[in-house]
């Protein structure tokens, strides 16, 4: 029974990990940018949900798409006005730019919201699903479900809309896409905006589960990074599978090696995966 509970724990946190990683994966895959800002955007989504709950009593699980939508607009503007200027520059320049933006956003949040930890406190508390000897926290299930709905919507958008195909086309071959009439600059901006949408939504979903603070951003970023490498860069199903995989591996790592080494097993497997399958579990260049 202990093993089953540990598996359930892993899946429950894995769903949250998937939400954290999808936006990061999309931006990395399409724009070839390692978006260091991603963790801070998740935290910002958390703050939006916190204040929406505090002042208007909106449930963060319902607010998540709205938090994403507000941040989508900001993301498009940021990419179009700032990041687009360095898109043709070497990889390191875009990395530095998002690093700088991350410092700016983190410190702005510190100044605006202070460093105090906050958390959305739902009343009544969502409670747990009690299945005899197995318990599953309800809030994690709700967050995962809403997250999976948003991720599915994003996948459908990329697969079945003209705009989605334009994003995929730009990702596969920017010059060829431009020759075929795709507005590359605009496509980049919207793709980045979609990444920010997912980060903002994830932040709102996590706001009732983990403490919110500007200092939490680095933790989310590192999780997103590992999940994308496990799942495969730029692959949305890859990010989902990577998220669940990391959750379960960490959970069993903590059981088998002790909580202190929960990450050890995950990183050993990550190194092994990089050695045998560097493109990740579902990574295939050019496809979403």
């Amino acid at each position: 029974m202990l093993w089953l509970q540990v598996l359930v724990n892993g899946l429950a946190v894995g769903g949250l990990y998937a939400c954290i990683a999808v936006g990061f994966s999309l931006v990395w895959g399409v724009l070839n940018i390692i978006n260091i800002l991603h963790g801070s955007l998740i935290v910002l989504g958390g703050y939006l949900a916190f204040f929406a709950h505090q002042y208007w009593g909106i449930n963060p699980f319902l607010f998540a798409p709205l938090a994403g939508a507000v941040m989508f607009a900001g993301g498009v503007a940021l990419q179009y006005c700032v990041i687009n200027h360095v898109m043709a520059r070497p990889f390191l320049i875009t990395l530095l730019l998002t690093f700088g933006l991350n410092l700016f956003l983190d410190n702005s949040m510190l100044a605006l919201f202070s460093a105090d930890y906050r958390k959305v406190l739902l009343n009544p508390a969502p409670g747990v699903f009690d299945l005899g000897s197995i318990v599953v926290p309800a809030d994690r299930i709700y967050a995962t479900l809403v997250g999976l709905v948003l991720i599915s919507a994003l996948a459908l958008l990329l697969r079945f809309t003209q705009f989605g195909r334009a994003i995929i086309a730009v990702r596969m071959d920017r010059d060829a896409a431009a020759l075929l009439g795709v507005n590359v600059r605009w496509t980049y901006a919207v793709a980045f905006g979609l990444g920010v949408f997912m980060a903002g939504s994830a932040g709102a979903l996590l706001s009732a589960i983990f403490p919110i603070s500007p200092v939490a951003s680095a933790g989310y970023l590192s999780k997103a990074f590992v999940i994308c490498v496990i799942g495969g860069l730029g692959s949305i199903p890859g990010a989902v599978i990577g998220g669940f995989a990391l959750g379960v591996i960490e959970s069993f790592g903590a059981l088998l090696l002790g909580p202190e080494h929960a990450l050890t097993l995950a990183f050993v497997l990550l190194i092994a995966l990089l050695a045998v399958r560097p493109s990740g579990l579902l990574g295939r260049q050019g496809f979403a």
């Binding site: 202990l2 540990v6 892993g10 059981l255 909580p259 202190e260 929960a262």
Partner: peptide
């Protein structure tokens, strides 16, 4: 008596063992 790493985001597995 168990330790958790600095920066641990989720404590479910440790607490499951603690509960046991």
């Amino acid at each position: 008596f168990e330790k958790y790493a600095i920066g641990t985001l989720d404590h479910a597995s440790a607490l499951t063992q603690l509960r046991a």
